[in-house]
C-alpha cells in the first residue's frame, strides 16, 4: 500500500507543555499519502494533544509540523497557522472524540456548513446571495450535490433532512466523517472513530476508511483504542506512552514489540529493570 515519495505530514521534534506537565515530548513521525497511520497508546499518552497540535487547536511549545499539499508548491507550516486556516487552506480535516455535530441543524445543513469557504466566496461574501444571483444558486446546488454524494456513500442519504441530533450514535459518527470529508481535505484526522460502535458498525467503519484511502487517495491519521480496527486497517502505527514515541512501524512489527507490550500490559517485577534499560528510562 505504501508509496515512495515524501510524506504528506511531517511532525518534527514537537513538544507540548502545559505548565509543568509535558504532554508531548520531542515527538517526530511522518504520515504518507494513501496510507492509514494509527496513533495508539494508553490513556493519557498525549494522542489527542498531538491531534490538537496538528489541527491548530494548540500551538506546540517546540517543534515543527509540515504539510505538503499536492496543489501547493511550498509546504504549509501548521504550527504557525490559525486553526480555521489549517482546515480551510492546508486541507486538514478532523473529527472529535466526543462527537461535535451541529445537532440542531439538519444532516444536509451540517455538510453545507463544512463547505462554507467556497460557498461564501461564491456568494460574494453574502452580497450576491442577498440579491439571489444565479451564480450563488448554482454554487449552492453543486454543494448540495457534493453533500449528497457523501451521504450516499456513508448510507445517510435517507436521513438528510433530519436533525443531526436525532441520529443514532453510529450514524452520528459516520456523519462527522462525511462532514469532514466535505471540506475536501488531503489528510483526515480521526479521533477514536470506533468508540461506542458495535462490532458490525466498526467493521463497516474499516471498509469506509479503506475506501476513502483507496478511492480518494487520502492520508488518514487515526487515534484508536479498538485494536481490531487498528491492526485491521493501519499501514503504519505510532505508539505513544507518557508523551514519548516508544515504537513506530508496520502493524506486525508493533504487535510483537516488547516495549509496546510492556506499556500496555505492564511488566513483572523482575523484568522492570530489563525493560527500563531497553526503553532508556
Amino acid at each position: 500500500m505504501s508509496e515512495a515519495g515524501p510524506p504528506i505530514l511531517q511532525v518534527d521534534h514537537v513538544t507540548m507543555r502545559f505548565g509543568g506537565l509535558v504532554a508531548v515530548d520531542d515527538l517526530s513521525f511522518a504520515a504518507k499519502p494513501r496510507e492509514i497511520t494509527a496513533i495508539i497508546g494508553p490513556n493519557g499518552a498525549g494522542k489527542t494533544t498531538v491531534f490538537n497540535c496538528i489541527t491548530g487547536f494548540y500551538k506546540p511549545t517546540e517543534g515543527m509540523i509540515q504539510l505538503r499539499h499536492p496543489a501547493h508548491p511550498e509546504p504549509f507550516l501548521l504550527e504557525r497557522m490559525e486553526d480555521h486556516e489549517i482546515a480551510a487552506r492546508a486541507g486538514v480535516a478532523r473529527t472529535f472524540q466526543n462527537i461535535r455535530l451541529f445537532s440542531g441543524m439538519t444532516v444536509l445543513e451540517n455538510l453545507l456548513v463544512a463547505q462554507h469557504g467556497p460557498l461564501n466566496e461564491a456568494s460574494f461574501f453574502s452580497f450576491a446571495g442577498l440579491l439571489g444571483l444565479k451564480r450563488y444558486r448554482k454554487a449552492e446546488a453543486e454543494a448540495v450535490d457534493f453533500a449528497s454524494y457523501w451521504l450516499e456513500k456513508l448510507g445517510l442519504i435517507d436521513r438528510a433532512d433530519d436533525a443531526a441530533g436525532d441520529l443514532a450514535y453510529g450514524d452520528q459518527r459516520r456523519l462527522e466523517i462525511a462532514r469532514s470529508m466535505c471540506t475536501r481535505p488531503v489528510i483526515l484526522c480521526l479521533d477514536e472513530p470506533a468508540a461506542g460502535l458495535n462490532p458490525r458498525e466498526s467493521a463497516g467503519l474499516n471498509d469506509t476508511l479503506r475506501w476513502i484511502r483507496d478511492e480518494h487517495g487520502l492520508a488518514i491519521l487515526l487515534i484508536e483504542h479498538d485494536m481490531g480496527v487498528v491492526m485491521g486497517i493501519s499501514d503504519h502505527i505510532v505508539v505513544l506512552d507518557y508523551g514519548r514515541k516508544i515504537a513506530d512501524g508496520a502493524p506486525e512489527f508493533i504487535r510483537n514489540d516488547p516495549t509496546v507490550i510492556a506499556a500496555y500490559l505492564g511488566v513483572a517485577e523482575d523484568e522492570v529493570e530489563l525493560v527500563e534499560a531497553e526503553v532508556g528510562r
Partner: peptide, 22 residues
C-alpha cells in the same frame, strides 16, 4: 446564505466550526 448557516453553526458548536475552516 453561508454566513447565516455559519452563525447558526457557531451557536451550535464553535470548536466544530473552527475545525471546518470557518
Amino acid at each position: 446564505l453561508p454566513i447565516g448557516r455559519a452563525w447558526e453553526a457557531l451557536r451550535e458548536d464553535e470548536i466544530a466550526c473552527r475545525s471546518l475552516g470557518i
